[in-house]
Computed example of a mutant assay.
Amino acid sequence: MVHPNRTDPETYYDEYGEQEWERLDRDFFHRLEWEGTVEQLDTYLPSSQPNHSPHVLDVGGGAGRYSIWLARKGYTVTLVDPSETQRELAREKIEKHGVDDRVTVHAGDVRDLDFEDETFAATCCLGGPISHVLDGAERLRAATELRRVTTSDGPVFVSVMGLIGMVMITVQYAGRGTADGDDLSVMPDLVRERDYTAALAQRHDMDPALFDCHFFRRDELVDLLSNAGLAVETVVALEGVAGLRRTHFEALDEPARDTIRELNDLLRTDSSLVDVSPHMLAVCWA
């Protein structure tokens, strides 16, 4: 029996709980998403000084991992997330890490941000919040909101989930008895429609394996952000060259892992690699 309500992103992340905090530090594969993201933040964020703490918005910030990193870097942060469970976890983690004087947490939705125009020096929308918006007009509204609340010429960081990476991972793991390959039969429809939903799973007589999600091609992401009035500086692959492997990195020693990181850095902006990466990140200017 399919349970459509469990594919709703807010419900999913309420149930996902602590795992969202753990996700980016779970293993080498997931740390690549984290490392690739903070590399871009370090490069493009306005500088913070002891007497200057730019205000950064973290949209869909979940349990607060990026907000805490930003606060430790000297930024003032506002975290917004629709999941009550994730907001409560964020408050706990923020207090535990001693940055509760720098980070505030609010309920909110990327499609309707309750802030005045040009409130923030920079805006982050990381991990895929816009991927959870299935309607195309609402995705444009969400991207426009990110631009609206950011100071003119301030950086906006948007990461989404990639279509080709999802398909290729599923094909690679099909028949191996792992969850990554269980959705093979839905992949042709996903390529045609680009939306993973409970209804899509139900058409194939299976329970949904993940949340409602729109999977992007690189050019589609660029078009969306450009149409929202954002100037796209670059789009980078996050998991990159490791994106289709996902597991068994524990067999590699640290020099081998460092080589994978070096390869990612060398190929980070290659458009072909961006398109097959499970997550891609766009750096834009408002």
Rank of each mutant, 00 (worst) to 15 (best):
M1G: 07
M1E: 09
P4V: 01
N5A: 11
D8M: 08
D8T: 05
E10D: 07
Y13P: 06
D14F: 10
G17P: 09
W21A: 12
D25N: 07
F28E: 12
H30Y: 15
L32E: 01
W34E: 06
E39P: 03
E39C: 05
L41A: 05
P54A: 02
P54S: 01
H55C: 09
H55P: 07
L57D: 03
D58P: 10
D58N: 04
G61E: 05
A63V: 07
A63W: 13
G64M: 04
Y66M: 15
S67K: 12
L70T: 03
A71I: 04
R72H: 08
T76F: 08
L79G: 00
D81C: 02
S83R: 08
L89A: 03
R91D: 09
I94D: 02
V99L: 05
D100G: 07
T104E: 15
V105H: 01
D109C: 03
D112T: 06
L113N: 05
E116G: 12
A121S: 10
A121C: 03
A122T: 04
G127Y: 14
G128H: 02
P129N: 13
P129Q: 14
H132Y: 09
L134Y: 10
D135P: 00
G136T: 13
A137V: 08
A137W: 11
A137R: 11
E138P: 13
R139F: 14
R139M: 12
A143P: 00
T144Q: 13
E145G: 00
E145S: 00
L146Q: 09
V149C: 01
T150K: 15
T150M: 08
S152F: 05
G154Y: 12
V156N: 11
V156W: 06
V156Q: 08
F157K: 00
M161Y: 02
G162D: 08
V167S: 07
V167F: 14
I169M: 10
T170Y: 05
T170I: 10
G177D: 01
T178N: 04
D182E: 15
D183F: 14
D183Q: 15
L184E: 01
V186T: 05
P188K: 06
D189N: 06
D189K: 03
L190I: 09
E193T: 08
R194G: 10
D195G: 05
Y196E: 08
A198P: 00
L200R: 02
Q202E: 15
D205W: 12
D205G: 13
A209T: 11
L210S: 09
F211E: 09
F216Y: 14
F216K: 10
R217K: 10
R217F: 15
R218G: 01
L230P: 09
V232S: 02
V232C: 01
E233C: 07
V236S: 00
E239P: 07
G240S: 10
R245K: 14
R245G: 04
R246V: 15
T247L: 13
T247E: 07
H248N: 15
E250Y: 05
L252F: 14
P255A: 14
T259D: 05
T259Q: 09
T259V: 11
I260V: 02
E262I: 08
D265I: 03
L267D: 00
R268S: 01
T269R: 14
D270A: 01
V276E: 02
S277F: 13
A286S: 13
